[in-house]
C-alpha cells in the first residue's frame, strides 16, 4: 500500500495539473475569445488566474513541507495506511470497477437489465456466497428503487436500446 507521503504527492500533483490547465486555457482558449484581458466586466480570466496563483503558492509551500518531512523522517512506521491490506484495497478497487462498468452500460442496456447484476457483483465482492439469496436480494433492491423513483417521483429511468420498462 502506498504511504501517506506518496498519496500526498499524488494529490498535490493532481492540483498542480489543475492549475497548469487553468493557465493553459487562459493563454489559449480564453485569449482567443477575447475574455482574458480588459476591465472587470470583460475579463473572465482575472478571477480564476488569481485563484490559480494562490493555489500555486500554497502548492509550493506544501511540496516544501513534504520534502522537508521526508528528509527528517524517511517513513513513519505508524502510517495509518500501512494497516490497509491488499485484499481490502482490492475489494474497494473491484467495487469501483463494477460501478464504472454499470454506469457505462446503464444507458445502453437499460436500468432493469443492468442494475440487478451490479448489485449481485458487489455483494459477491463483499464476500457473500449464497447465490439464490443474492439473486433474490438484487432483484428486490433494484425493483424497489425503480418503483419508488418511477411511481412516486416520476423519474424515467434509462430504458436502454430495447426500451425495457415496467408498466406499474
Amino acid at each position: 500500500m502506498a504511504s501517506s507521503r506518496t498519496l500526498n504527492f499524488i494529490a498535490l500533483g493532481f492540483l498542480l495539473a489543475v492549475i497548469v490547465t487553468v493557465f493553459w486555457q487562459i493563454g489559449t482558449d480564453l485569449k482567443e475569445q477575447g475574455i482574458a484581458s480588459g476591465g472587470p466586466y470583460d475579463n473572465a480570466a482575472s478571477y480564476p488566474r488569481s485563484i490559480a496563483i494562490f493555489v500555486a503558492v500554497l502548492l509550493a509551500f506544501q511540496f516544501g513541507i513534504e520534502i522537508l518531512k521526508g528528509k527528517a523522517a524517511p517513513e513513519a512506521k505508524g502510517d495509518r495506511l500501512m494497516d490497509i491490506k491488499p485484499p481490502d484495497l482490492g475489494r474497494a478497487g473491484m467495487m469501483l470497477v463494477v460501478f464504472a462498468i454499470y454506469l457505462m452500460v446503464l444507458t445502453t442496456i437499460g436500468y432493469h437489465l443492468a442494475t440487478a447484476p451490479m448489485i449481485f457483483a458487489i455483494m459477491w465482492n463483499c464476500g457473500m456466497r449464497s447465490a439464490s439469496k443474492m439473486m433474490l436480494l438484487s432483484l428486490a433492491i433494484a425493483t424497489g428503487f425503480a418503483f419508488v423513483f418511477e411511481v412516486f417521483l416520476n423519474v424515467v429511468l434509462p430504458l436502454g436500446i430495447w426500451n425495457i420498462f415496467i408498466p406499474w
Binding site: M95, F99, I119, I122, S138, I141, F149
Partner: peptide, 11 residues
C-alpha cells in the same frame, strides 16, 4: 447497504 447506496447515488 453498500450496493443500495451506490444505486441511490446513480439514480
Amino acid at each position: 447497504l453498500i450496493p443500495s447506496i451506490l444505486l441511490l447515488c446513480s439514480i
